[in-house]
Simulated assay, not measured.
Amino acid sequence: MTTQEAKKIRIADYLQSLGYIPAKQQGKSLWYKSPFREETEASFKVNTELNQWYDFGTGKGGNIISLAQELYGSDYVPYLLGKIAEQAPHVRPVSFSFRQQASEPSFQHLEVGELTHPALLRYLQERGINTALAQAECKELHFVHNGKPYFAIGFPNVAGGYEVRNRFFKGCIAPKDISHIQQSGELREKCLVFEGMTDYLSFLTLRMKNCPTMPNLDGQDYVILNSVSNVTKAIDVLHGYERIHCLLDNDEAGRKAYWELAGEFAGHIRDFSQNYNGYKDLNDYLCGKRQNLTVNPPLRTIVKPKKKGLGL
């Protein structure tokens, strides 16, 4: 995808594909609750005529490239174009009307149940993920999106929303937020941080493969960002942990997210992405999909991997 091709995508349609819907409409402007933070009043505006956005909370705005820069925490244009291209198959033209949007939300008739559909389990298996582990962590969602019925894997977050995945669809059911998985009512000493649900499920699969005879492997809590734009929300939750281990992506957005966390938790945080250096993320490491990364390797604390597992 080129820059010009990306700029032809309507920002409102792109936000819709990610699960963000406007709270109100004023003429040519659509107002959203900002995708960059939690808020009660909509302060994020999209001008549908100019195809430009502006966030009054940060004073930033621009085109779809600058939006992706904020969403994915990177200013490396080839990386941003790749992220937009990944989402492009899920972008559908939407005729927004505040009256219509108020009465007909993006995701309708949501039904939440146990994860059992063979197609969804097969999708997980193709990603190398243990389906029994995924069934314990995820739900099966059935819903209507833009007038069409869908079913997908749903990964719950702390605000009551879901990350939504199947072979053909990637998005979220708002509100978008982090996921915080605690093993007990009190915070454990250690917390592991992942970028997305697939990375988290890949970690659980790898851990089970490397330690199949250990009766109790849940010695720590987990935070899943569900987007690098949620780092600020994660910071609030991570206060109180003595040790924070990050297993983020080996790309510019992952490095930026790590350094943002490291600036807050210096002395308590370690980076474990070097343990799968040469792979974009934990799922690629699980599947053996080594990549030639287009950015330089991160200059972070290097943790020497053990012969098996991730050295945790």
Rank of each mutant, 00 (worst) to 15 (best):
M1R: 05
M1P: 06
T2K: 13
T2H: 02
T2R: 13
T3E: 05
A12M: 07
Y14K: 10
L15F: 11
S17K: 04
L18F: 01
G19L: 06
G19D: 02
G27I: 05
K28E: 02
W31V: 09
P35G: 08
F36N: 08
R37V: 13
E38A: 14
T40Q: 13
N47H: 11
N47M: 02
T48S: 07
E49D: 07
L50K: 14
N51I: 04
W53D: 00
Y54R: 12
K60H: 11
N63K: 08
I65W: 01
S66E: 13
S66K: 07
Q69A: 13
Q69F: 01
E70N: 08
L81T: 09
G82W: 12
K83Q: 15
I84A: 04
P93Y: 04
P93S: 09
S97T: 10
F98K: 14
R99P: 00
Q100G: 06
Q100K: 12
Q101R: 07
S103T: 03
S103L: 09
S103Y: 04
S106D: 10
F107L: 10
F107T: 10
Q108V: 07
H109E: 13
H109V: 02
E111I: 13
E111G: 11
E111M: 13
V112R: 12
G113V: 12
G113A: 04
L115Q: 06
P118R: 10
L120C: 09
L124Y: 08
Q125N: 12
E126H: 14
T131N: 00
T131P: 00
L133T: 07
L133S: 05
A134T: 01
Q135H: 07
A136V: 00
E137H: 06
L141M: 09
H142P: 03
N146G: 05
N146H: 14
N146E: 14
G147H: 11
A152Y: 09
P156T: 08
G160N: 15
G161E: 05
Y162I: 05
N166M: 02
F168C: 00
C172W: 00
A174S: 15
K176I: 06
K176T: 10
I178K: 07
S179R: 08
S179E: 02
I181W: 11
Q183F: 11
S184I: 01
G185F: 12
L187A: 15
R188E: 15
K190C: 10
G196R: 14
T198Y: 06
D199H: 10
L204R: 14
L204H: 04
T205V: 00
T205R: 01
T205A: 00
L206C: 01
R207L: 12
K209H: 11
D221E: 03
Y222E: 07
I224W: 05
S227G: 15
N230M: 14
A234G: 06
E242S: 15
R243M: 08
I244R: 13
N250T: 02
D251L: 05
A253L: 07
G254L: 03
K256W: 00
K256D: 04
E260T: 10
E260I: 00
L261A: 09
G263F: 06
F265T: 08
F265H: 12
G267C: 05
R270P: 00
R270G: 11
D271G: 07
N275C: 15
N275P: 01
N277K: 13
N277H: 10
Y279N: 10
D284C: 03
L286F: 03
G288H: 05
Q291P: 00
N292E: 12
L293S: 13
N296C: 01
N296E: 11
P297H: 04
L299W: 11
I302N: 15
I302S: 15
G309H: 07
L310Q: 04
